[in-house]
Nucleic acid binder design. Structure first.
Lengths: 117, 117
DNA sequence: TCTATCCACAACCATATGGTAGTGGATTAG
DNA sequence: CTAATCCACTACCATATGGTTGTGGATAGA
């Protein structure tokens, strides 16, 4: 896997559990234990998932007493948004074309007097 | 892997080769052969990568003669954009807070008369 | 001090994926 | 018809990851 930074970010976000963690962390920092509760997964798996998020720089982990507190780094998610934003024009054009096609089809249907089903 | 639809999309986009393919496909549909040329990868690997993109519904493949033509589906990338957009408010708030912190630091520096380096 | 809690580390297994090599079907060009 | 091109399919290997189990360190609370 020749995975670059953005690729690591995408890979980390591919797992629904990790995306749920990210969502939860938007409410504020949370301990590993706090992140374990809603997920019905072992503490070890949660730690592993967090490790992936940390490696992708989506989350920062700091020790405070016997707890490890996880904090969300917004830059990583912004990078995803920026990447997708580059394709905005493409899909907007595509949807415009699709719109044209749909209108053509409707016209055709009107001529045919029925659909192709 | 309990990967849902969006997860499959993220996983497909984790590979830089596949993201490069997506970029190329914004210029219009392309045959498998056409996608092979710029990547210095075997035809088999390109086919595999395309298969992942197809499975994630990012690309549609249609046969035309002896060629398979790949076309980009903008909806999939829009889904990524929409996902990241949900976090927009979070990171904008975060950056505002960061801004405040930075200004506080500058004030402090002015008082100290020097930086902490 | 003693115990419970929070967490990390290691070993282990199954599966998905990145990558190579070989082959053969289908279509196009000569 | 024959050869070259485009592409899919299979087998094979190495590694990363999802997941479990067991364990032990460190801290907080009694």
């Amino acid at each position: 896997m020749v995975v670059d930074r953005l690729g690591t970010t995408f890979a980390a976000l591919a797992d629904p559990t990790r995306r749920a963690m990210v969502k939860r962390l938007t409410r504020g920092p949370e301990s590993v234990h706090g992140l374990t509760e809603p997920f019905a997964l072992s503490q070890q798996m949660i730690s592993k998932h967090i490790a992936y998020l940390v490696r992708a720089r989506i989350v920062i982990k700091t020790k405070r007493g016997r707890e490890s507190v996880c904090t969300l780094r917004p830059e990583a998610i912004k990078a995803v948004s920026d990447w997708a934003g580059d394709y905005r024009r493409f899909w907007e054009e595509s949807f415009d074309k699709l719109d044209v096609v749909l209108k053509e089809m409707k016209k055709q249907e009107a001529k045919d007097g029925r659909t192709h089903n």
